[in-house]
Design a protein around this nucleic acid. Structure first.
Length: 265
DNA sequence: TGTGATGTTGAATG
DNA sequence: GCATTCAACATCAC
């Protein structure tokens, strides 16, 4: 379930459980999600290592090891971490697992295998090469506004583009558009600066609020997407109901008579 | 049973 | 070349 707030929550979980313990053994059940090494190489590289700390950028979690190299965890749609001791607590789709020297294990679970794991020797080079944008909570208003300039694509696609700003996913992008009353299909560069500033502030506010609640949807404010992002919800202004369309390549929910469509021309 | 899902990417298109 | 769109990836749940 990982967009930025979810990954931040994974980071806290990882930091709180898996640092400063030597990895004694690594078992790979399915190396499909390990992108730049095969299973045996992964085992060889990780065995004997210790995680020292981690940092997050967008939806990417980089875990630093005692050799100053990094393990990149990207959770895809269904990635999850599971720190446990007993075999009975092993999850069903555990793709690989680290056995620490304190008899605890860290398993990486991922049913759909969309997760991406990379072993990184040179972190700076990797990030530069990947083109990963600034974190959505780190990027400044000025940088955000500059990036929107003359963009003809949809605001939804803009918010989802990890090379422009990293961390916003499908749900939170819809929430930003909803709260600011911007039609998600609006051409980004055609939206007035004042409105874009509002979108920027709203985006960071939404992400921070979600992080405070540990990305636990049940504790989100009542009027957030889980309430309105479903068939038949009436618009806040009473004009029509929620509808959906494919925008920016993803299923997008919005209120056509509530969220304004901005476009060039 | 068929369909779509909180993500990314490389190929195709304009 | 650039910006944007789309199918593909694999499994589960409704």
């Amino acid at each position: 379930m990982p967009e930025l707030p979810e990954v931040e929550t994974f980071k806290k979980y990882f930091d709180g459980t898996s640092l400063n313990q030597k990895i004694e053994r690594v078992v790979v059940n399915d190396d499909k999600i390990i992108r730049n090494l095969n299973g045996d190489e992964f085992v060889n590289k990780l065995t004997g290592r210790t995680f020292l700390d981690s940092f997050r950028r967008g939806k990417y979690l980089f875990a630093r090891m005692d050799n100053d190299e990094y393990l990149l965890l990207h959770f895809g749609m269904t990635g999850d971490l599971n720190y446990y001791e007993l075999e009975e607590d092993r999850t069903k789709h555990e793709r690989f697992v680290f056995y620490f020297n304190n008899h605890q294990r860290l398993g990486f679970d991922c049913p759909r295998k969309f997760a991406r794991i990379n072993y990184i020797e040179n972190i700076k080079e990797y990030i530069a090469k990947s083109g990963l944008g600034k974190d959505a909570l780190v990027i400044t208003e000025a940088e955000f506004l500059a990036a929107t300039k003359a963009k003809k694509g949809s605001i939804k696609g803009f918010l989802l583009n990890q090379k422009i700003l990293a961390g916003v996913g499908n749900l939170y992008a819809d929430e930003v558009c909803y709260k600011t009353r911007i039609h998600p299909g609006s051409q980004t560069g055609a939206i007035p600066t004042k409105k874009l500033k509002e979108a920027f502030a709203t985006m960071q506010d939404i992400l921070n609020t979600a992080i405070k609640r540990s990305a636990y949807y049940k504790e989100y404010p009542d009027n957030w997407f889980f309430e309105w992002r479903k068939e038949g919800t009436p618009a806040p202004n009473g004009k029509g109901v929620v509808t959906w369309d494919k925008i920016g390549g993803r299923t997008t929910y919005f209120f056509p008579n509530y969220q304004r469509l901005y476009s060039f021309k």
